[in-house]
Nucleic acid binder design. Structure first.
Lengths: 299, 299
DNA sequence: CCATATGTCTGACGCTAGTCAGAGATATGG
DNA sequence: CCATATCTCTGACTAGCGTCAGACATATGG
């Protein structure tokens, strides 16, 4: 079976089994929609506008579901203190109890999937589930070229600098490091690639085009998104841009504490070379010759 | 995170992503229910009663959906030749065209999951999907003790004998082999364990209780259900019964051509011993001493 | 203070999915 | 041939999910 056929077959069986799982909620008077609301409100409560955004619900529909839960005495809504247009919804103690029941049902449904299996198969299932989860998250990550001055890009760069400051033995002061002003990372001078997961920035990387080579800079992946192979995807994308621009060589420098980054570069054909600039925070300099063969495009 | 939490987290992300996948159908005028019908009718057509059974639909509802598809000119229904009460439904050429379109959309949706990933991750995702599919099928298999005279049990035994006849170099004639009359495999003389997947028999195995030992017999797994670890589950279940009955020893014999069975037995602590009976079709005799420690119960 | 935007709510409406009862046609065993 | 069962279909009904327009209250920038 080819990959596509396998994905479809996987979908069939998973929706069937997992669909059966969701029926754990059923049998109770409450509708699935109302249950989702209870889950999302959670122990801490939430603003209604956030609730709507997270579950992607219509405002009228949300309102109606909330009235229903309110009538059952499971939730309480109050105006938000900082803006009385928005309302804040929280569980009452009855609501918390109900949520606990739902959680127990949900746990039981999940357990019923594991229970029939002997120990070794159970372990194999869980490990495969972990892999799928990781890779599905990864495939939901979108890469796009953005203006390095945009809020999302600035957000990434701030997190990046914070992390450097925390990890470098000497701390990190951007002012002492080689600069990379936004203009230099904007086409056609360069490319700033932003990675987003469900519209949240989770990584970045930039290519600066010099006359004779491309320079990789600002490679960063949020801790929450590590292990998804995101560094690879960003790097490959930047390489694509370099090839498009017919740059024969890629260069970059990095700090000795950034070991994942170093192994990422080595894995992708970068070789360590003598220092080719005076970046004070760098301990290792890498180069990679680019053939002009283009690799197949992936989003 | 514990196993249950991991299953729930897996469910969340999969329903989210796979749900998004199913929207591939949407945007077209047809409802999801009608699409499922088209898929299930398929190129060869099908009897309506089978269609209902497979999709677990109400007869009234099915009828209405079919009328709708008929009005669109996608299907044609005719009385079944062998019983004019039942009707047979087949796709018209327009219907086949529509099904092809749906398949293309579905393929595209599946591909959109794979496309973003670099090659190595894509392979990892597909392999994990295969694992999950196999193990979910496995966890959907139910074991139960049934009367060895019941239709499902007889069905399994027939398939079992057929397979022995096909695989043994000498063929197989049950009359020449040591008998195992139903009464001897019925509690308390013995136990006949039947494995079913979605109500279809896919395997069996029996324990016959002698005074000083238990005898494993009739171990069989349908070809369609191999690789799911089903043999292990049946064997473990039979061992449980033997322990319950405080039998200190398990015995069995097998033919040299049944190599998977032999490795199953060896994997589970059976050791080859000299022939302890005169079964004409056996080449190998196995024993396993049972400790009375009970393993945790699994369905 | 005014114009405009934002957030919430209500009422009216529509579609999908599904259930239930019963009618009518056809098989099947005795 | 008759009683009974099986299969399909229609009509009547319900619940859940969701959309849309507009009302109302409250913020916000000028």
């Amino acid at each position: 079976m080819d990959g596509i056929g396998q994905v479809r077959s996987f979908n069939r069986i998973v929706t069937q089994q997992v669909g059966a799982l969701a029926e754990g909620f059923l049998g109770r008077t409450r509708s699935l929609g109302a249950c989702r609301l209870l889950f999302e409100i959670g122990a801490d409560g939430i603003e209604i506008r956030q609730l709507r955004a997270r579950l992607a619900l219509d405002s009228g529909y949300t309102s109606r579901l909330l009235r229903q839960l309110e009538a059952e005495g499971l939730i309480r809504t109050t105006p938000s203190p900082r803006d009385t247009r928005v309302r804040f919804v929280a569980l009452t103690s009855a609501g918390r109890k109900e949520l606990a029941v739902l959680n127990r049902l949900s746990d039981k449904a999940a357990a019923s999937l594991l229970d029939p299996l002997p120990e070794t198969q159970r372990a194999a299932l869980l490990s495969a589930m972990g892999t799928i989860e990781r890779l599905l998250r990864s495939s939901a990550v979108r890469l796009s070229v953005v203006n390095p001055d945009s809020p999302a890009a600035r957000y990434c760069l701030e997190r990046y600098f914070e992390e450097l400051a925390a990890r470098f033995e000497s701390g990190f002061d951007p002012a002492l490091s080689r600069p990379a002003p936004p203009a230099e990372l904007t086409p056609p001078q360069g490319y700033f690639v932003l990675a987003t997961l469900y519209d949240e920035p989770v990584g970045c990387g930039a290519l600066k085009c010099h006359a004779a080579y491309g320079e990789i800079r600002r490679m960063w992946v949020a801790t929450s998104a590590r292990g998804l192979g995101l560094g690879t995807r960003i790097l490959l994308r930047l390489e694509d841009f370099a090839r498009e621009r017919r740059l024969p060589l890629l260069r970059l420098e990095t700090n000795k504490t950034l070991t994942e980054a170093q192994s990422l570069y080595r894995r992708h054909g970068f070789r360590e070379v003598p220092a080719f600039n005076d970046e004070p925070y760098a301990h290792h300099w890498f180069e990679k010759a680019l053939s002009s063969v283009k690799r197949p495009l992936r989003s």
